[in-house]
Write a protein that binds this DNA or RNA. Structure first.
Lengths: 291, 291
DNA sequence: GCGCTGTGATACCCGGTCGGTATCGTAGGA
DNA sequence: TCCTACGATACCGACCGGGTATCACAGCGC
């Protein structure tokens, strides 16, 4: 009736992403004919056509689009299952070693909060060992989904909490970071409109799922690049309050009046409250409420 | 390296639930030896022991408990993928038939809201066809997870929103439903303490995942049984405001002062906002905000 | 203590199917 | 019109998933 083996899903997702059987087969480390056949079998089994075989390549049908989404989610769940099971059995079962928690954070964000959280949790009587996994812009969500992290500090609206359980920890206002000598740096406050229309400071562009949106601003990959570009007078940055920890002397910070506040949450996969995880969450919430 | 086929997960979950290879094999429609072998292979592949083979049966290790949880989630994701893909391709691709949305509701809950929502949404220009799937006590969550429903009306704190996206629709206070002649029915208000210690009205017991907690109260499976038992003077019910729609003449409703309010949400699987679904959500939110 | 019963593991065999190689059909493009 | 690129088809071998028969062993009753 159903089935849907992960092997088939892996194959279909590869083809749907490459939109090319040959390249997909190469990525999967196999030959093209068996891949074609497997996808055909999948289509027959589901009773649905997933791909439109046009001249010169392949296109997704509506059903194919659905399966690409759902299939990715399923594969993530499967690899998460494997990873978490290995971790649960590997370390702590053999010796009496402590459980390890992997906490995914955005590099350099909410530094002070992270420091306090780690200190406070380490002081708990039966605290697990916490490994800090430093992620790029939006990787924390993927890390939670595929099991490489157990819990994350996320920053709404940059991250999406969809699909996770979470607790709110703190709210910050945002600041514009400008080159120290820039005329706008002298202002007491700025609005988003003030800084979005400055020709000599085009906003930097972060990659979204690996690709950069078009625009005049520089393409960047990490916080340090951004900091340097601002210092060089090439761009303007919008950062939450806590990020001012890493300001350079060549930077000037001006409060933004109408930028959305940044809310930091501690988030974890739904229905995965192990005792160790629950302890970390409790510590974080207490810390937040005692501020 | 990883793999984790859904077949293996199905096998392991069956064994972990039955805690008995023979019965698990029977449930899976196969013989016991290949099942034993498959689970052993899974353990070897993961490098982790999942089951403690004692004399007289089987017990889960810590890692096994983790895999039982994660495996169930993965299998749910896989069947959801199959179901949603079939639905996406089956009906609407062939003819120009409209998309169908399956809305899971708790039978008899929030009746008025549901009625208004269906009416308002049907009046939208390009509304999808909405199929109402009536669920028991807590089934909506499972229905969303395994793909038999696209969206649900959930009632916190009875349902958990963990793992779903949701929008809040309305908040209701709760009432005690008593036999009309009972002394407490004459009270203007009641507290939870007032009705939890009444020997002749032991609270009814709902099944949790198929099993009933021990207690003096009657075991019930649906709203009507509860209504009748209250009318017969055997128990007392606690229901939200909107549930008073189905009160009998032999019932008396008394406001509860300290019962937690019931919050109705519209909820859907994270990251699954199809245009049709988005329309229904929008309608629901507008309806809620215009009250 | 002996055999019985119930449980999971092992041995062995068979057939399906998964993946590889070779080849075809066909649609664009020069 | 040929060539090229791409997916489909044909065929084959090897692996592995599943079945049957049987073993190993722990309780339990006599």
């Amino acid at each position: 009736m159903d089935a849907l083996e992960t092997r088939e899903l892996r194959y279909f997702v590869a083809v749907a992403e490459e939109l090319h059987f040959g390249r997909a087969a190469e990525r999967l480390g196999m030959a093209q004919p068996p891949l074609s056949r497997a996808v055909q079998q999948l289509e027959r089994r589901l009773g649905v056509s997933l791909l439109e075989r046009n001249r010169r390549g392949v296109a997704l049908t509506d059903a194919g689009t659905v399966l690409l989404h759902e299939g990715r989610a399923t594969l993530d769940a499967a690899t998460a299952a494997a990873r978490r099971t290995r971790r649960a059995g590997g370390a702590d079962n053999l010796s009496g070693e402590r459980t390890r928690l992997v906490l995914a954070v955005k590099t350099a964000a909410a530094h002070e909060l992270l420091q306090k959280l780690l200190d406070a949790y380490a002081a708990e009587p039966d605290a697990a060992e916490v490994e800090v996994l430093q992620c790029g812009m939006c990787d924390q969500e993927a890390r939670l989904r595929d099991g490489s992290a157990d819990v994350a500090l996320m920053h709404v609206p940059f991250n999406s909490l969809a699909g996770f359980d979470s607790e709110e920890l703190m709210t910050e206002n945002q600041f514009a970071i400008l080159p120290a000598g820039h005329p706008l740096a002298a202002r007491k406050t700025l609005s988003l409109a003030d800084i979005s229309n400055v020709p000599d400071l085009p906003p930097a562009r972060w990659p979204r799922h690996g690709i950069y949106a078009p625009g005049p601003g520089p393409e960047i990959r990490d916080q340090t690049q951004l900091a340097q570009l601002v210092a060089l007078g090439r761009t303007v940055a919008i950062v939450p309050d806590s990020a001012r920890a890493w300001l350079w002397s060549a930077h000037a910070a001006v409060p933004l009046t109408n930028a959305p506040p940044v809310v930091t949450h501690i988030a974890w996969p739904a229905h995965s409250r192990s005792p160790a995880l629950a302890g970390l969450i409790r510590t974080a919430v207490q810390l937040a409420s005692s501020r």
